[in-house]
Simulated assay, not measured.
Amino acid sequence: MKAQNDINSVAKKVLLEEAEAIRQVANSLTATQDFAQCVAAMLALPGRVVVTGIGKSAHIASKIVATLNSTGTPALFMHAADAIHGDLGMIQPQDFVVAISKSGDTPEIKVLVPLLKRRGVPLAALVSNASSYLAQQADYVLHAPIEREACPLNLAPTTSTTVALAVGDALAMCLLEGRQFTSQDFATLHPGGTLGKKLYLKVGDISVQNAKPRVSTEAPLKEIILEISGKRLGATAVLHPATDELQGIITDGDLRRMLTNFDNLEAVNARDIMTPNPVTVDLEDFAVEALNRMQQRNITQLVVLDGEQFSGFIHLHDLLREGLI
């Protein structure tokens, strides 16, 4: 067993080698027009991007497909070995194929490429060897050269797969921008989980489930206490008795502070103890914006407005329950 310092040294060496390889590929990839032309061709075609590979490259291809699909570019994964046993049928005339292969000369690729050419679909080669069979046959060469693998034996695919994955990410992000894909588009494709909720869940979706504690500015202390206790949100809105316009908020903390500020509690009304100009949020705002305001002000609830009118409350516990915290 290597000493901890030796282990850390190996880990750091691998990470730095792979990082340097990506930096070098960033320069080589953009040295020609192939990458930009490849992106333009993908944007022009109404079909899907089919990504294929063999071995470890197949795993990278599968991940690139997932990234493309989640960022607005319809994509399919096709294993290069399965393609020549029937899966080639998934490719339609308006599709675009990206083949990933470090060497570009594997037997499966050499069998697959003529079949792809026969179908007349555009082909991009993501390769390390620009002189390979795959590169020579491709319409676009996404050249990602590496000097050696991060593996001490220079055998296990490490740097080559990392670089291929990074190029795939670059491709996906260029397509995202080319399609003017927005955060709202992203939300429609990721409705589940915390990420999706941050992008689509609105304040009104949550606050509608809560009670709407409210009193007028002239409400006596007993009414205020009963409203706060009965609605169980730790606060009540204070509204103008004639117009229902928001005037302030009274929280549990305001009630406690009142005990030290007033001697004659029977004469106290809402106007006397409310906090004017409370922090608010609109019911059409995203719930994550409500969370940000709570965190910035170090408070646990916000008054929700529908335009200028009182609509209810949203509480920190609501956001916790939705998994936004």
Rank of each mutant, 00 (worst) to 15 (best):
E245F: 15
T194G: 02
G248E: 05
G193P: 02
I224Y: 03
V215N: 06
S183P: 09
L221Y: 15
G234W: 06
P241K: 15
V208H: 12
A219Y: 09
L195E: 01
S216L: 08
D185G: 09
K202Q: 15
K222I: 09
G192S: 11
L226S: 14
I225C: 08
S183E: 14
V203K: 14
A219K: 07
K212G: 04
K212C: 11
H190F: 00
G230W: 00
T217I: 13
I224A: 02
L189F: 10
G192Q: 05
T194S: 09
D185Q: 04
S216G: 15
D244N: 15
F186T: 03
A219I: 06
L255Q: 06
F186G: 10
I206M: 10
L195Y: 00
Q247N: 12
I249W: 00
L201P: 06
R214K: 09
E218R: 14
S229K: 12
K212T: 10
A242V: 15
D252A: 04
D254C: 04
L189A: 14
S229E: 15
P220D: 14
D252M: 04
I250M: 00
I206Y: 11
A237W: 02
G230E: 03
V203R: 10
D254R: 05
G253A: 06
K198D: 02
R214C: 06
A235G: 07
F186A: 06
G253V: 05
H190Y: 00
P220K: 07
G193S: 02
I225L: 09
Q184V: 11
E245R: 14
G248R: 09
G196D: 01
E227I: 10
G193Y: 03
R214G: 05
A235Q: 10
A242L: 15
L233Y: 05
T236A: 05
F181C: 08
I249F: 01
T251P: 02
D252E: 13
L239G: 04
L199T: 03
A237C: 04
